[in-house]
Computed example of a mutant assay.
Amino acid sequence: MAHAGERWPIGDQPARGASLRSDRGQADRDDQEGRLGARRPLAGTWDRGRRRAGRSGAGSSERDEVILAAVLRVHLLYLWQHRRVLHLRRPRRFSEWVQHRKLFDRDPRLPLLTDKVAVKALVASALGDDWVIPTLWHGRVLPARPPAPLPLVIKARHGCGQIAFARTPAEWDAARAQASGWSQTRYGRWLDEWAYAGVTPGLLVERYLGDGDTLPVDYKLFVFGGRVAFVQVHLHRATAHRWIVMDRDWVRASPPTHDPDPSRPATLDRMIAGAERLARDHVFLRIDCYEVDGRPLFGEATVYPGSGLLPVVPASLDRQMGSLWRQAREELGF
C-alpha cells in the first residue's frame, strides 16, 4: 500500500481561482534565468561527469557516453514535464535536487532503503519490531495459493507503484497475472534512479491494512537533514485519491481546496520521531507511515519522490523544499 500514489505531485491541487501570483512571478523569473543560462548547467555537469569517470584506461569513452546520455535524458525529461530548464549545476528547487541526486548521489545506503524486504530489518533495529508490517512471503513468482489468509497486499520489492490487493481468490489470481512481469524487469533504469539498480527483483506479500475497499491514510514525511519539515497526507487512495501537505506543526502548506484540513494523527509525534531517527545523517529521505489501531507503522522509504518530475504545488513549496535540501547538504558537509 505504501506505493499507491507514488507518482503523484508533491502538493495538492490549488482551488479553482486561487491566486498564486507571487509564485507565478517567481516561476517566470526562474524560467527566464533558465532560458538565458540553458547551456551552462549542462556543460558544467558534463565536465564534472567526465572527471569522475576518468579520461584514461579502457572503456573511458564508453563511460563518457553513458554519463552524457544520462545527463541529456534527465534534462530533457525535466524540460518535458516541468516546461522549464533544469538548473543542475546550482539546484534551487526540490524537483531539481532530485535530478541532482539521481545523477551524482551514490550513497551506498540508498539501495538498502529502496529494498522493501531488506529495509524492514533496518527499521526494526532502529525503531522496534512493532513498527514493521511483517512480510508473509517473498520470492520471484507468486504461489498458486495465497501464502496466508486473505485479504493480502502484493508489492514489488525493487520498485514503486507496483502494488495489487487480493481480497478474494479471484483477486489473488488477477494479482498473480499482474505481478508476473514485475520481477522480470529492473526498475528505475529509464528514469536514471540509480538506487534501485542493485535491488534484487522480486515480490513480497503483506497483510492488508485496509477496511474493505477503504485504504488507510498514507502519511509521507519529508525529512531534510534529519528533521521532518512537511507531511504529505494521502486521502481516499482507492476511490478519489487526493493529497494535502501539512507542515510539522500541522499547518496547511498547500493551497486551499474543497477538502478541510485533515485531522492530526494521534501518533504524529511518534511518526516524526521515528522518521527523524531513520533519516538521521541523510540529506533527504521521505518516510511513509500509517496509523493503524492507534499505533504508527512504517510503510516505505523513498529517495526519489515522483522522480522529481511531477509538479510541486504551489511553486513556492518547491523552492522552500529546495532550500531545505541545500541547507541539509551544507550542515552535513557536502
Rank of each mutant, 00 (worst) to 15 (best):
L324Y: 06
D12S: 05
P305F: 02
A273E: 04
G37S: 07
A170V: 14
L136H: 03
W182L: 04
R7I: 11
K120H: 00
G44Q: 09
L122C: 10
S254E: 01
G37Y: 00
I10W: 04
S95H: 01
D129F: 02
Y196A: 03
T267F: 08
R24S: 06
G294D: 12
T45S: 15
L20R: 04
L285S: 11
V228N: 06
G5P: 04
W137A: 03
C160Y: 13
L113T: 00
W46A: 13
S22N: 02
L235R: 11
L297M: 04
Y187T: 01
P260W: 05
R106I: 07
G225H: 05
E65F: 13
R237C: 14
L127D: 08
L113C: 00
L268P: 00
G322I: 09
R39K: 10
T267N: 14
R73C: 15
D31M: 09
L88H: 13
R106E: 08
G210P: 08
D218Q: 12
T45I: 11
W194N: 08
W80A: 15
Y208S: 00
T45L: 15
D211N: 05
E171Y: 06
A58W: 15
D30P: 03
A148V: 04
A148Q: 01
Q99W: 12
I287A: 10
V123H: 08
L285C: 11
R106Y: 06
L103T: 06
Q26S: 10
L113S: 05
G225R: 13
R101S: 09
R101Q: 11
G306Q: 02
S95K: 05
G212T: 00
I244E: 01
R106D: 06
T239R: 13
A240S: 12
L332M: 06
A197E: 08
M1N: 09
G25P: 06
A58Q: 15
G274H: 03
R242W: 07
T114L: 14
S56K: 11
A275F: 02
H100G: 14
G274V: 02
H87D: 09
D249E: 08
R84L: 11
A164G: 02
K155M: 02
S263T: 12
H100D: 15
L76N: 15
E193A: 01
H100E: 12
G181I: 05
T214G: 11
S323H: 14
E193K: 08
P169E: 03
I133A: 03
Q178K: 15
A15L: 09
L150K: 06
D269Y: 06
G333C: 12
G159I: 02
W250Q: 02
R89A: 15
G5L: 01
G306M: 00
A279H: 11
G49R: 07
W131H: 00
A15Y: 10
G274I: 09
D173H: 07
R248T: 03
A328V: 13
I133D: 06
L72F: 14
A156M: 05
H138E: 05
V228L: 03
